[in-house]
Design a protein around this nucleic acid. Sequence first.
DNA 1: AATATCATGTAACATGTTACATGATTGG
DNA 2: CCAATCATGTAACATGTTACATGATATT
Lengths: 203, 203
Amino acid sequence: MSRSEQTQTAVLGALSVMSMTGYALREEIRSVLGHFWSESFGQIYPALAELQRQGLVERRGADRARSSVFAITPAGTARLRELLGEPVQPVRPRNGLMLRLFFGRQLGPEACRNLIREARAEAEARLAELAVARSESREGPHAEDRPYWLLTISAGEHAARAAIAWADEALESLASLPDHAPPHAAAEAPAVSETVHPAREHP
Amino acid sequence: MSRSEQTQTAVLGALSVMSMTGYALREEIRSVLGHFWSESFGQIYPALAELQRQGLVERRGADRARSSVFAITPAGTARLRELLGEPVQPVRPRNGLMLRLFFGRQLGPEACRNLIREARAEAEARLAELAVARSESREGPHAEDRPYWLLTISAGEHAARAAIAWADEALESLASLPDHAPPHAAAEAPAVSETVHPAREHP
DNA sequence: AATATCATGTAACATGTTACATGATTGG
DNA sequence: CCAATCATGTAACATGTTACATGATATT
């Protein structure tokens, strides 16, 4: 999977489930695949044009600036299988939370705790969204697709629960640290204060 | 955190632990932060130049093409704290495994199982690496940093264990699926498939 | 009629990786 | 000396997002 074939895969995949407009594609990808995939207009339309040129999708409906629906062709389905069979290309990690925690000594325990609480809340929210997705999947287009969709939902749930468990553990482990603030801190720092930072100077 | 301040954060953070060359920076970031962060030469050197220009790091040693060590300045430490305090910028997800599983019906259960087994093996490997990192952290430069490093290691472990648990569950759930291969699969010839639109234009 | 949303597309920008060029240092 | 590795840097490329331009359709 060298090029932006990734986008082609996502687009062909979505069209394999249901024909739709490019606009709807973005919406679908955001709402349905949103937990593990993302595409922007700037990728979707060029990809659609290229796929059409290759005869992998076709346009139906008025072709002059009017709303038109894209549908996958048999060749497109074959291509989709081919693309799905290619090796998963590794993602370079960029986890801003972990970066901050790794240098957490510079931030001090309290700020770190806030970051972790935030992450925990996000994981809870994700869990709730996934519960909705799970129940909605019962009305999904194809019963044949459902077992696979549930796999991805389950993966999200496992990850979110792990994040929550980690956060609780991390908060506890940070609680035992003396809240001594960063080394020689508060030099020129203006009164930033942040969301929860009431106790700068202790009694 | 608008620009590539992310890179500046990582570089300043690494230099806050220990002074080193740009080359070593890449190695350190890859080996120590590798589980959740990555930078390439193409980012590190320009970032170092910019940081030096701003007086946040300084160069020590011969400055004519010879090996030189970069060290963080007091202003750099202050800037690091500022950067670490900025909101975590969300990452757009791109999980190739989940994309494949979501359209797993096109691949068939067996291919999906292979993907999951692969992911499980990677998670096991990650777990082993993290165990090494955990034991190595005992000889880390600064005892004060250790609690924070352990937080990130623990997060990796939680995530990896969750991935393993999910994989086992997923394999079991796929085992119950009839191994009927993808819909009208096998032949690469476009054997007419069409998931949603069985009928072409002609009646 | 006015506004919001749907829909398509593109250009400018932002980001990030790879491959290369160059030379120093080190170990066999 | 030769090769490998350390070290710095850059240019070309690949990727991806945002903002804008344009106009249709639907809603109020």
